[in-house]
């Protein structure tokens, strides 16, 4: 960790703590989150390939867990939001996003790793752009460009409000949705990890360099650290769930006139 306290004084965690290049420096340096990303992707791919190699009708324990994740994405998110009739082409996207986000978020509280990959905004941007492209392409392919533009303005609006709403909706579709999608994931992971760092480093500093009173105070600080770690588990799942939920909602809008 870069923010290791010195006797000169406590250095709070900062964005610089998230910059951890392994090889080289600069725009194309191999960084620790990149390495983690490749590692987790490889692990997920391995599980998805090997885990589905011999599927049986009566699942074993491993298959049961895999099916649990897949069933959650497929039924609780995809089918319930998009609808059973249209969900099939998006299942792979939802499954990939959910597993990737979940595993990488959990990396943030995994001992020895403790780095949430998605606290680097480059990765959430990739996912958000992918979702953005998918729902725009789906929209245009299904309803046509004109239909898509028409869909932006709800019917029954007074004439003077139409341009305003149109611009706002277009902005929502093209800018706000992908940006919020990326920023939400990034912000949650970044803030959560910063908080963890703060309590870990602060507790350590108080214990090692503080006076008698601060040494005592460091105990509840570490307690809060554990509490926040537990909270981060919740946030990891929640963010993965929210990401696929919003993806499904955006995709479901393509088929909104269907039901």
């Amino acid at each position: 960790m870069i923010g290791v306290p010195t006797s000169a004084g406590f250095v709070p965690p900062s964005p610089a703590d998230f910059w951890q290049p392994l090889i080289g420096d600069g725009g194309f340096a191999i960084t620790r989150p990149m390495f983690l990303m490749v590692l987790t992707t490889a692990a997920i791919c391995l599980v998805l390939v090997l885990g589905t190699r011999r599927l049986t009708l009566v699942p074993g324990r491993g298959q049961w867990a895999l099916e649990g994740v897949y069933g959650f994405v497929r039924n609780s998110v995809g089918r319930d939001v998009i609808g059973a009739a249209h969900v099939r082409p998006y299942l792979g996207l939802l499954l990939a996003i959910f597993t990737l986000v979940l595993v990488n978020n959990v990396m943030g509280i995994t001992p020895l790793v403790q780095y949430p990959t998605f606290s680097r905004i480059g990765f959430p941007i990739v996912l958000a752009v992918a979702v953005w492209a998918v729902y725009l392409v789906a929209h245009v392919r299904r309803n046509g460009l004109i239909g898509f533009l028409k869909h932006l303005v709800p019917p029954g609006l007074p004439v003077f409000a139409v341009p305003v709403v149109f611009v706002l909706e277009l902005l929502t579709f093209l800018v706000i949705r992908p940006v919020t999608l990326a920023l939400r994931l990034f912000g949650n992971m970044f803030a959560g990890h910063t908080l963890l760092l703060l309590f870990a480093l602060g507790g350590e500093f108080m214990l090692l360099h503080g006076g008698a009173f601060l040494k005592v105070v460091s105990v509840p600080t570490f307690a809060i650290f554990f509490f926040i770690t537990a909270f981060e588990i919740l946030v990891s799942f929640l963010q993965a769930y929210v990401f696929v939920l919003l993806t499904s909602l955006y995709i479901a809008e393509v088929y909104a006139d269907d039901h």
């Binding site: 912000g187 929640l238 939920l245």
Partner: peptide
Amino acid sequence: ILGFVLCEQFAIFGI
């Protein structure tokens, strides 16, 4: 959860 997320995003923008 959807409402929570839509509300939370403003705090995240804040960060």
